[in-house]
């Protein structure tokens, strides 16, 4: 099963929740940091990284002696990555989304596959937990292509072993990277905080992810501050609240030391075990419904 820990608002506690769940998981689990623009799950899990692979996207390279300036490629490209100006074929590698369309349509065989580095994928282990992290290259603008490569790794794991559980630390927000992180999940945990700001972005996330038909539940972090607007919204929309993490000095202190809060703060263990049960049940229920 693939469990995505997501949120509309940044800084609500996705990594706090993901690292705690991983540390209390009762079976083989792989922790995946898909927040490739600013991965930070490793700061809490402190994995030993034993392999780092560069990740690339395919871009066109031109043999100008074969190019007849027919513009088949530039007409196709929606991103202005390849264009004909005057008597010159121009390629802008950083604009390319890697669709490969230009290579397919070129009638002269003037384009061959080249590559641009997107970033890197790190493989490691933290105790019994397998760890995978994508990290975008500084200056690279497109994160979903790198995320797809990371997702292909854990999709293979799940395909090989249907007992394999994956916990994904997703990027915040509701744009392409966030959608890319949750769309293949079997269950989505939306982390929020009980404030007007938290509610605003929680609503956006719920609206953005609802159409996927993936079971979703809320985790209210820093419970006790703010107001009850998130709880009322959840009640109104029928969103289950799977866990509440109290606004507590001990939690903040553990977090500030880079500790996994479920390990450092004993009363939270029950909270995260209950969350784990709720996630499992939601994912199983969906699987059963799909099988029928």
């Amino acid at each position: 099963m693939i469990y995505a820990i997501a949120s509309g608002k940044g800084g609500t506690g996705k990594t706090t929740v993901a690292s705690s769940l991983v540390s209390l998981w009762d079976g083989p689990v792989t922790a995946v940091d898909l927040d490739v623009e600013e991965p930070n799950l490793h700061l809490f899990l402190k994995p030993e990284i034993h392999r780092t692979d560069p990740a690339y996207i395919e871009i066109p390279e031109a043999d100008e002696s074969k190019c007849t300036l027919c513009r088949a490629c530039s007409t196709l490209c929606q991103f202005k990555a390849i264009t004909v100006m005057g008597q010159t074929l121009l390629i802008f590698p950083e604009m390319c989304h890697g669709c490969g369309g230009c290579l397919t349509v070129c009638p002269e065989g003037a384009l061959t596959p080249g590559r641009r580095q997107l970033g890197e994928i790190c493989h490691g282990r933290a105790g019994n937990v397998r760890f995978i992290m994508g990290r975008l290259r500084v200056g690279e603008a497109m994160s979903p292509p790198l995320m797809r490569q990371v997702k292909a790794l854990f999709a293979d794991m799940v395909a090989e072993d249907d007992k394999a559980d994956i916990i994904v630390d997703a990027p915040p927000g509701v744009s392409c990277p966030a959608v890319s992180a949750v769309i293949d999940a079997d269950c989505v945990v939306l982390v929020t905080e009980p404030t007007p700001f938290g509610l605003h972005d929680f609503k956006l996330a719920w609206e953005a992810f609802s159409p996927f038909g993936i079971p979703m539940g809320a985790v209210i972090n820093r419970a006790g501050i703010g107001d009850d607007s998130v709880q009322r919204f959840c009640a109104d929309k029928g969103i289950p609240i799977w866990a509440e993490i109290p606004f507590d000095r001990a939690v903040a202190e553990a977090y500030s030391r880079g500790e996994v809060v479920a390990r450092a703060v004993a009363p939270l263990r029950g909270t995260f075990r209950q969350l784990r049960r709720n996630m499992r049940e939601a994912a199983m229920a969906r699987e059963a419904a799909c099988a029928r």
């Binding site: 991103f79 202005k80 990555a81 264009t83 100006m85 005057g86 121009l90 802008f92 604009m95």
Partner: peptide
């Protein structure tokens, strides 16, 4: 209408 590549498109238009 382009999110990116407006300058390249504008150059094409002028050419």
């Amino acid at each position: 209408v382009l999110a990116q590549g407006a300058g390249i498109q504008a150059a094409e238009t002028l050419a």
